[in-house]
């Protein structure tokens, strides 16, 4: 198994506040991984660091051997928790944009997904609701044939039907050469879909294990374990 993501002593501070401290991590290719932790535990900061949107205070990150940069961006498909689309564009224009900038983007796949979610490619993003925009973004991100998908809270704000579709999409798009990292604090919904989980607590890595190992060793679900680890 090759390593898709490796962190050594990864630390990020904002001013005096330590948001991530000394994370050592090595993730194998071909897994669906849950990045779990309550709000403010450093999940988004971690994902932004991998995406080169932030620069580490200390330590280093390697994505398939590359430092965050042009080469890593070619193989990472990122779904932020923000809606980042240019409001003036139509959906089909943003699809063209993705086709132009990402070699691994498949426009036909994006159109197919949009259709399943009842979204009209001719609509302007300006006229869409927040939920619809999030779905458009998901289609764009999953229509890439990336090595690493980083999905930041993809099931946070959407309705149950869309959530099921998202999970289905994730299962359908999964292949042995790609890795999916999903950050969330709603574990019960996605536990079945995960191979592996990482727990972040106050910026520290407190657990990193296979889901079925946790269930076998602890005799409880990851969701239950999560609630025990993070009970206030």
């Amino acid at each position: 198994m090759s390593t898709i993501l490796e962190c050594k002593g990864l630390t990020k501070t904002f001013g005096r506040k330590k948001v991530l401290s000394n994370i050592d991590l090595e993730l194998e290719t071909g897994k669906i991984i849950g990045l779990l932790g309550p709000n403010g535990s450093g999940k988004t900061t971690f994902i932004k660091l991998v995406n080169d949107l932030l620069t580490p205070t200390a330590g280093e990150i390697r994505i398939a051997g590359f430092k965050p940069g042009v080469e890593s961006k070619k193989i990472v498909s990122y779904l932020p928790e923000k809606t980042y689309l240019n409001e003036w564009m139509k959906v089909e224009q943003i699809i063209e944009f993705f086709s132009d900038f990402y070699e691994d983007f498949h426009a036909d796949k994006a159109y197919e997904m949009l259709q399943k979610l009842n979204l009209n490619p001719g609509d302007r993003l300006k006229t869409m609701s927040k939920g619809m925009k999030e779905k458009v973004q998901l289609c764009l991100v999953m229509a890439r044939q990336a090595k690493l998908y980083l999905l930041d809270e993809p099931i946070g704000g959407v309705d149950p039907a869309a959530r099921d579709y998202i999970l289905e999409t994730i299962i359908n798009n999964y292949n042995k050469d790609s890795t999916i990292i999903i950050s969330t604090h709603l574990i019960a919904d996605i536990e079945k879909v995960l191979d592996y989980v990482i727990f972040l607590k106050d910026g520290e890595l407190v657990l990193s294990s296979f889901v079925d190992e946790i269930r076998a060793e602890q005799g409880k679900s990851v969701d239950k374990l999560f609630k025990e680890v993070f009970k206030c």
């Binding site: 940069g69 042009v70 990122y78 240019n86």
Partner: peptide, 17 residues
């Protein structure tokens, strides 16, 4: 707007410098 607000998430994750 294009670089320093939400749209920056898209622009700075493009495979470019």
């Amino acid at each position: 707007k294009n670089l320093l607000t939400e749209e920056g998430y898209l622009m700075f994750t493009l495979p470019t410098l």
